[in-house]
Nucleic acid binder design. Sequence first.
DNA 1: GTCATTTTTAACCAAATGGTTAACAAAGAT
DNA 2: ATCTTTGTTAACCATTTGGTTAAAAATGAC
Lengths: 205, 205
Amino acid sequence: MTIVKKDKSTEEKILAAAKKIFVQQGMAGARMQDIADEAGINKALLHYYFKNKEQLFEVIFMEAAGRLFPRINEIFLSDQPLFEKIERFCSEYISIVLENPYLPLFVLNEINRDPDYFLGKVWKGRNVPKPEKFLAQIEQEVAKGTIRRISPLNLLMNLISMTIFPFVAKPMFQKNLGLDEWQFRATMEQRKKEIPKFIIDSIKK
Amino acid sequence: MTIVKKDKSTEEKILAAAKKIFVQQGMAGARMQDIADEAGINKALLHYYFKNKEQLFEVIFMEAAGRLFPRINEIFLSDQPLFEKIERFCSEYISIVLENPYLPLFVLNEINRDPDYFLGKVWKGRNVPKPEKFLAQIEQEVAKGTIRRISPLNLLMNLISMTIFPFVAKPMFQKNLGLDEWQFRATMEQRKKEIPKFIIDSIKK
DNA sequence: GTCATTTTTAACCAAATGGTTAACAAAGAT
DNA sequence: ATCTTTGTTAACCATTTGGTTAAAAATGAC
């Protein structure tokens, strides 16, 4: 069995490098030279593969957004009961993001910089989360009396906030609470179960 | 009574302009020329008041951080009972941020870009939030049996996440949930009471 | 092997950008 | 009024940065 440590193709090296630099520095802060250096290639070669910075950025951004949004929809649109959806959302989402802890801040930041660019590019691709069904489901449970009266919008915000925010504020939490990388991961693993429990304890009648 | 529409001093104009541009574009994306234009002055005059971009940025960043962090401490270190603290935190914090909705993302983003710069500058000023007392207080309540067993760290994360995240994700929530400016504000006003209720319903025995 | 195509590089270029200079105007001070 | 200090400007400069060019390797077709 030959151990073929096959070189990643140049394009793959570029994409990995670009992702690292863009996520760290943002579109404005990223330097094409840094991306080339990180990929171990010449800057001209970068432009041979991707004609300009904006196009390269778009590839990275779409890939990042594509990792974060479609799965949400899949869960929100499924036919599971409410509590199961909440559990699934927390668990799956935290798993996804644990592998790319800096994606949410990156994406939110770029959305903030130019909401309409985002709307035009990502939102088009019908992968846009459609929360209506989930919101309606909450209202049904309220009507059935299985959960207390609560504004569906607020419940949705609570769920998403508790799940995502710790990643967005990761460096702050780490500095302020003195968590090392491992402790942070462990805490987030805990939260896969803690958040659903927290929510259900609050709303279940 | 003379209506003296006194011009803001040049320095004030610069600071207002710089805040707007930096918060919108971040340190890397902000252009000194844009700040000068926004302030209605010459670029040289900008350097007359602030010797370079970094120093100007630091003033803006510290002012922003100074708005967000000290009040937290004030609340967390007070001698109020736990539930009151939670209510006060949500209510006061949302009020503060409603006046500057983009500050949290700005600050988190810059912390992320260079956590140690942040640590060195802001964290020094002893306004650094010290959560120990708050965490201990939660443990006491658990011991007393007034609230159910819950990890203090998780509870703190939940509180902060639900309060701050909607601002960080404001453009996303607005696009996705179709909220206009006014509806967003109204929702956040609601949340001043909704979040504490949500938490207390979850943990109170 | 030879030729055509693809990949890679060093050197270069134009525009953008942070920052400076030197002169000019306004405002006090005497 | 004159002089000094402070505020403001247009023009300029050096560096950085995204992007290009033309030539050299490498790869593949025959």
